[in-house]
């Protein structure tokens, strides 16, 4: 499935993502005072078609944010519709959540998780990547525009068991950034 990466590179990327998601989970865990379960990060190659097909799950909310710097790309966060109220409560939001307040909560969550994931990842590789503010994304009302033919996708999942809430952070690199990333990775592995 993955032709781009050697086993050693894949292992390294997985571990770097694992470390950055640990930092992200710690930020959120301290905020909501609940334990967060981490997945093993998934690293894969995707085509735009595969990528777009991921954006049509009706059980989750989507947010998007782009990042610029020595590596460029986009972060998609999925946040389960289930459990949003419970998380909102833990974060001192007033219930029931209005649509505006819900969006605010989702964007805040996406920013905490995606921000820590991307920053932690880039820092470990001495790369810089500045993340824009997230916006809500709906596959039914917006057409997804892509500028790449295939790319590297890194996916991690956070579960807050006590609230039955889960969130996935998907980092997609632009094609040109994959080479930058692999070069840095090589330095780390030498």
């Amino acid at each position: 499935m993955n032709m781009l990466l050697s086993e050693e590179q894949r292992d390294a990327l997985q571990e770097l993502m694992n470390i950055s998601m640990g930092q992200a989970a710690n930020s959120l865990a301290r905020l909501i005072e609940a334990k967060i379960t981490l997945s093993i990060p998934k690293i894969s190659d995707v085509t735009p078609e595969q990528f777009v097909s991921m954006l049509s799950d009706q059980t989750v909310w989507y947010t998007r944010q782009s990042f610029l710097g020595s590596i460029k790309g986009e972060v998609i966060s999925t946040l389960s519709k289930q459990g949003c109220d419970a998380i909102g409560k833990l974060m001192d939001y007033q219930l029931p959540l209005t649509q505006d307040r819900l969006n605010e909560l989702l964007l805040e969550l996406a920013n905490i998780l995606a921000g820590a994931c991307l920053t932690g990842f880039a820092e470990q590789l001495s790369l810089n990547a500045k993340l824009s503010m997230p916006t809500m994304y709906s596959a039914t009302s917006q057409h997804y525009h892509y500028r790449w033919a295939s790319t590297l996708m890194m996916e991690v999942e956070f579960k807050v068991e006590v609230s039955q809430f889960d969130s996935k952070i998907v980092i997609c690199l632009e094609e040109a950034s994959v080479q930058t990333l692999l070069a840095k990775l090589q330095q780390l592995l030498e």
Partner: peptide, 8 residues
């Protein structure tokens, strides 16, 4: 030596 650094 852990990546999971949550208080728990």
């Amino acid at each position: 030596i852990s990546a999971d650094i949550q208080p728990e």
